[in-house]
Computed example of a mutant assay.
Amino acid sequence: MGEESTDIGQRSVPTSVDVARRAGVSQAAVSLVLGGKAAGRVGKKSQEAILSAARELGYAPNSAARTLRSGRSHVIALVVPDVNNPFFAAVFEGAERAARKEGYSVILITLKDIQDWQQLINEAFTTYAVEGWVLYTMRVPTAPLQELLRDKAILVDGFTDEMPSLLLDIQHGMSDMMQHLIQLGHTRIAHLAAAPDDETFRLRHRVYRETLLQHNIPYRDDYQLRSAFTLEASYQAAYQLLTLADAPSAIVCDSDMLAAGVYKAAYALHLSIPRDLSVTGFDDSLVSRILVPELTTVAIPTDTLGEQTIALLLSVLEKKQTPHFDPLLLSLVVRGSTAAIEDK
C-alpha cells in the first residue's frame, strides 16, 4: 500500500506517490532515484523528471518510515577523539560523501572525556538507530565492547584481531618528515607529541627516535613534551621547549593543531618562522593553510580514506568479502614553515 498525502493544518505534505504522479513514473522508480539506486535501472530522462517533481513539490523522503519497512537505518556513526579538531571535519566530509553514494548517512560522535563506551553506544543505538560504526584513531575497545560491535564496526588508524582495520602508513609519513628536517641541517629537533596514549602516536614517536639514532643525532629527554589537542596546551608546551637554554631549531608536531600552538609561542618570544624555528605538522588540515607561513605537514588523503572506510564497513555490514587495502600512503607537503638552518 502506497503513501498517502498527509494534512498538517491547512498544508498537505507531499509523498512519493505525488512525486510519481507529477513525474509520470511508477512509485518504485521514485524510490530508486531518491534512494540513490537508479543507475542502470531508471532512465536519465525519468530521473530528471523525478528530481524536478520532488523539488517542485518540496518532497523529502521519510527516513523513519523507510527504517521501519526495511529494518535498517542506513546510518553510520563516525567516532573520533575530538570533534573540535578541523582534521576530523575533513575526515567526516570524505566519509559522508562516500557513504551518500551508497545510500547511507553519517553522524559524528566524539569520545573526548567520555569513559563509558557502553552508555555512549546504547544511546547511539537508541537515538540514531546506528547501523555501523567507524572508530577513528581510538583506543581499541575492551573485549565486551568488541563483542557488542561484532560485525558492525571497523577501526581506522588502529588495529585489533577482533575487528577489521584500515591502517595509515604513519611510519612512512613521519620518516619523510624527519628526513626533510635533517636534510635541511637540523639536529636540535624536538617532538611535541599528542597526549592520548594511542598506537598511532606511539608509532610517530618511535619513528622520530629511530630516525635521530640512524643519523647519529642524540635523543634528548628535554626535547620531548606531550600536549592535549588545544591551542592553550600546545602553546604552553611549545613555550617550555623554546625557552630551554639550548632551544630546538625545529619542532615536529603530531598534528597541525599542535603546530598552531608552536606558532603562538614563537610569536610571543619574537621568533621568526622559519628563520629562527622550523615547524612541522601532521594531517594537512585547514589549519595548515591558515597559518602564516603555511605549514609543512604530512597529508592524509581524506577523500581516499573516506572511500576505503565506507567500502570496508559496508563489506562488514552486508557480509560480503572484506576488501584488502594496503596501509594508506601519506605524503609530505613542504610549505613555508621549514627552512635550512643557518650556520651561526
Rank of each mutant, 00 (worst) to 15 (best):
I8Q: 12
I8D: 09
I8G: 01
I8T: 12
I8A: 09
G9F: 09
Q10W: 04
R11G: 00
R11F: 13
S12M: 13
P14F: 08
P14G: 11
T15P: 02
T15D: 13
T15C: 14
V17N: 08
D18G: 12
V19M: 09
A20T: 09
A20Y: 04
R21T: 13
R21W: 02
R22Q: 15
R22A: 15
R22M: 15
R22V: 13
A23S: 12
A23T: 09
A23Y: 06
A23L: 11
A23V: 10
V25M: 06
Q27M: 12
Q27G: 13
Q27V: 15
A28Q: 12
A28D: 01
A29S: 15
A29W: 05
A29T: 10
A29I: 08
V30L: 03
V30T: 10
V30H: 01
V30N: 02
S31V: 05
L32D: 04
L32E: 05
L32S: 05
L32T: 04
L32P: 04
V33C: 06
V33W: 04
V33G: 02
L34E: 05
G35I: 08
G35T: 10
G36N: 11
G36H: 05
K37E: 12
A38F: 01
A38I: 06
A38H: 09
A39Y: 01
A39K: 14
G40L: 09
G40M: 11
R41G: 04
V42E: 05
V42Q: 03
G43A: 12
G43S: 13
G43F: 07
G43M: 08
K44M: 06
K44Y: 00
K44E: 15
K45D: 15
S46G: 01
S46K: 14
S46A: 15
Q47K: 06
E48R: 11
E48A: 15
E48Y: 00
A49V: 04
A49M: 13
A49C: 03
I50G: 03
I50E: 03
L51A: 02
L51H: 10
S52G: 03
S52T: 15
S52N: 14
A53W: 06
A53S: 14
A53G: 10
A53R: 07
A54R: 07
A54Q: 08
R55K: 15
R55H: 10
R55A: 14
E56N: 09
L57P: 08
L57Y: 09
G58N: 10
G58F: 08
G58I: 11
Y59G: 07
Y59M: 07
A60G: 00
A60L: 11
P61N: 07
P61G: 05
N62H: 11
S63L: 14
S63R: 12
A64I: 14
A64P: 00
A64Q: 08
A64D: 00
A65P: 03
A65K: 04
R66G: 12
R66M: 06
T67V: 01
T67C: 03
L68T: 07
L68A: 02
L68F: 10
L68E: 01
R69C: 00
R69N: 02
R69W: 00
S70A: 13
S70R: 11
G71Y: 03
